[in-house]
Simulated scan of single mutants.
Amino acid sequence: MDRERLIERKIGERLRRRRIELGLTQEQVGRIVGVSYQQIQKFERGANRVSAARLVLMAERLRTDIHWLCGITDFHPVTAGPPHSSGAETPDPHQAFAQIGDPAVRVALGGLVRAVVERHSASQPG
Score class of each variant (00 low, 15 high):
residue 3 R to E: 09
residue 3 R to Y: 04
residue 5 R to T: 13
residue 6 L to R: 14
residue 8 E to F: 05
residue 9 R to D: 00
residue 10 K to H: 02
residue 12 G to P: 03
residue 13 E to W: 06
residue 18 R to I: 06
residue 19 R to A: 03
residue 21 E to K: 04
residue 22 L to S: 06
residue 22 L to I: 10
residue 24 L to M: 14
residue 25 T to C: 00
residue 27 E to D: 11
residue 32 I to S: 03
residue 33 V to K: 01
residue 34 G to Y: 13
residue 35 V to D: 06
residue 38 Q to E: 13
residue 44 E to D: 10
residue 50 V to S: 00
residue 53 A to Q: 15
residue 53 A to T: 14
residue 54 R to E: 09
residue 55 L to G: 05
residue 59 A to I: 03
residue 63 R to L: 06
residue 63 R to F: 00
residue 64 T to V: 15
residue 65 D to K: 04
residue 67 H to N: 12
residue 67 H to S: 09
residue 74 D to L: 14
residue 75 F to R: 09
residue 79 T to V: 12
residue 80 A to E: 15
residue 81 G to F: 07
residue 82 P to L: 10
residue 83 P to M: 02
residue 84 H to E: 11
residue 84 H to I: 13
residue 85 S to F: 06
residue 85 S to G: 10
residue 89 E to T: 14
residue 91 P to V: 04
residue 92 D to Y: 08
residue 92 D to W: 05
residue 94 H to N: 11
residue 101 G to I: 01
residue 102 D to C: 04
residue 103 P to T: 02
residue 104 A to Y: 12
residue 106 R to E: 03
residue 106 R to Q: 10
residue 108 A to M: 07
residue 112 L to Y: 09
residue 118 E to K: 15
residue 119 R to N: 10
residue 119 R to P: 00
residue 122 A to Q: 10
residue 123 S to C: 05
residue 126 G to F: 05
